[in-house]
């Protein structure tokens, strides 16, 4: 099922074209990575799906809903994880999850929260520690736990592995692969070519607001990072 769809999407930011007629879609159970350099339009794409940026032409659809016409309904089915895993430093993991879930009007039990924290392998000793003392990897785990608990059909991830060590990246990839296997549609923007090839079914290459290439994995072979890397450099 088509969960996210950008159709001839044009976005203007500060009087210049940030996205210039891009077309792509993400299906349920699929991880789609948008690759591109700085200023290519990756985050702009995510923000347009969230309804923070309005298309000047074209449209974005979330589960068939045109975002512009019903932002609230679109946001309800998506979980957004920003690059910095933005959470409250003065709260512990447990409090953060509870607070965000309250705001999202999602009722969960304490055991649900414990289960989610266990699922992301966050050490139980750190559950009651304030997030100001967390590493970036630990914060990212809490953010993933939030998306598990929100249980939305779509995940939007903005540079999720930036600043993580290789072990944490592997752990993170395993987590989102698990979520995708459970039917979630995941749109991830990144400039980590190898990470994207490792985890995504499809990769879209963005350059100056245009989708200049798309790569797909096959059942027997993942996407070749060398090909993507060459294309990335060629288009830079």
């Amino acid at each position: 099922m088509m969960m996210l769809q950008a159709d001839s999407l044009h976005i203007k930011r500060a009087n210049r074209a940030a996205l210039n007629g891009i077309n792509f879609h993400v299906n349920s159970g699929e991880i789609y990575a948008l690759l591109g350099g700085n200023g290519a339009g990756k985050s702009t794409t995510l923000l347009s799906f969230l309804g923070f940026l309005k298309p000047s032409q074209g449209q974005v659809r979330v589960k068939g809903i045109e975002v512009k016409s019903n932002i609230a309904a679109a946001r309800k089915v998506m979980t957004y994880l920003p690059e910095s895993a933005s959470l409250y430093d003065h709260m512990n993991a447990y409090e953060n999850l509870k607070y965000f879930l309250q705001l999202a009007k999602r009722h969960v039990t304490e055991s649900d929260i414990q289960h989610a924290l266990n699922r992301v392998s966050l050490n139980q000793d750190s559950w009651k520690i304030k997030l100001r003392d967390y590493s970036k990897g630990m914060r990212q785990k809490v953010a993933i736990a939030l998306s598990i608990l929100r249980d939305t059909d779509i995940l939007l991830l903005d540079e999720p592995t930036s600043g993580l060590d290789p072990a944490a990246i592997d752990e993170f990839h395993a987590l989102i692969r698990d979520l995708a296997n459970n039917g979630k549609a995941i749109l991830m923007v990144t400039h980590d070519v190898y990470g994207a090839c490792q985890v995504a079914e499809r990769i879209g290459l963005l350059r100056d607001g245009q989708l200049v290439g798309e790569f797909s994995s096959h059942s027997d072979a993942p996407i070749d990072p060398q090909i993507v890397h060459s294309a990335f450099l060629r288009n830079k």
Binding site: L47, A72, R75, E83, S86, L87
Partner: peptide, 14 residues
């Protein structure tokens, strides 16, 4: 400043 506004609003909070 802490980049929390977008995640909060994306939860459906107006």
């Amino acid at each position: 400043e802490a980049a929390l506004l977008t995640p909060i609003l994306s939860l459906g909070v107006s």
